[in-house]
């Protein structure tokens, strides 16, 4: 009897090894996926030559009138499918096709814009967010303009299931602070706290908080990084980014940008009490912020979101 159980364990291990080997071989032989290192199951794989793939603008909460929307959200607008068309060199194109998702801010200092993709999860385990991205200011001047984009970044918006014991709303944020007030800072930061909640409208159903306000960002230890910017505003280079997060204990596991992997032991997410309508929420967002009276553009070539389940 013990021998049969041993054989079963060996068979299961062999099946798992075979699955891992086949998955690895199939993904490495697929030119679109071989640029990524997804976990076992792919939750979504978005190439923007195939459309918006569910990436839409982050609209603010309101009740009764749009006037009740917080100003931070009121400035947001719809993302675009862009060929990175430039006045001097034509369409730059994406990393893998002619198109990338474009998140453009208004042309005023401090303006922000956010694109979001909304899911729910089916398993509270590790997930992985991978993307190829780049950023530039609008090429309104014949200058390098390397300090015109204040920041670009991403966030998750998560909440446990309705029967979970620890079902807080958790929002890991990371941004690349490129520049502030003209100073070229080039470092990764996280955000451990959000602003106070504001009641929206006259009922008791809606509240809002602008979690991307400029205050409260903290330097990621060892998070200084000089990214490839190139030599005029219309030349761009794509960078790779990977963020691993455990939906089980709601902790960051790993963060990589290009050749650098950062220590996430000191990372903290925004943590707020669970909200009454957001069970199993699994949202992903990317954002851009300008430092000057010029639009900042964040371009996303592709996104692969995967999970270990």
């Amino acid at each position: 009897m013990q021998g049969m159980e041993t054989n079963k364990v060996i068979e299961n291990a062999a099946d798992q090894n075979l699955e891992e080997a086949m998955l690895r071989a199939m993904r490495l032989s697929d030119p679109a996926l071989s640029r990524f290192d997804p976990m076992r199951r792919i939750i979504s794989f978005d190439q923007f030559s195939k459309g918006y793939a569910g990436w839409s603008q982050l609209v603010g909460n309101y009740e009764g009138s749009l006037d009740t929307m917080l100003p931070g959200y009121a400035q947001h607008s719809s993302p675009m499918l862009s060929t990175l068309g430039h006045w001097d060199a034509g369409s730059h194109g994406g990393a893998g096709s002619s198109y990338a998702l474009k998140v453009a801010t208004r042309p005023r200092p401090g303006a922000q814009n956010v694109a979001i993709k909304r899911h729910t999860f089916r398993k509270r385990g590790p997930i992985r967010f991978e993307t190829y991205f780049t950023f530039k200011p609008e090429a309104t001047e014949l200058q390098l303009s390397e300090t015109d984009v204040r920041s670009i970044g991403f966030l998750f918006d998560l909440q446990g299931g309705d029967t979970d014991q620890n079902a807080d709303r958790i929002m890991p944020h990371l941004r690349f602070l490129n520049a502030e007030n003209g100073e070229h800072l080039q470092k990764w930061q996280y955000k451990p706290q959000t602003s106070d909640f504001t009641a929206i409208g006259k009922g008791d159903k809606t509240a809002s908080h602008y979690h991307l306000e400029p205050q409260g960002w903290v330097d990621l230890p060892g998070g200084a990084q000089r990214l490839c910017y190139n030599e005029i505003p219309t030349k761009v280079n794509w960078s790779y980014l990977r963020f691993d997060f455990d939906l089980g204990d709601m902790k960051a596991l790993a963060f990589q940008c290009n050749d650098r992997e950062f220590d996430m032991s000191g990372f903290e997410s925004i943590s707020i009490p669970a909200m009454k309508n957001l069970w199993c929420m699994l949202n992903f967002a990317v954002f851009a912020e300008t430092d000057v009276a010029k639009s900042a553009f964040l371009y996303i070539d592709s996104v692969c979101i995967s999970g270990d389940f």
């Binding site: 929307m69 607008s77 719809s78 675009m80 068309g85 474009k102 453009a104």
Partner: peptide, 27 residues
Amino acid sequence: PESHTAIVTRNEHWTGSATSQPYECGW
């Protein structure tokens, strides 16, 4: 074929010379 609705101006009070946000949509 792709079909898309984009919100380029929402609840903005237009006076003087006003424009919607430029939208890239060559596709």
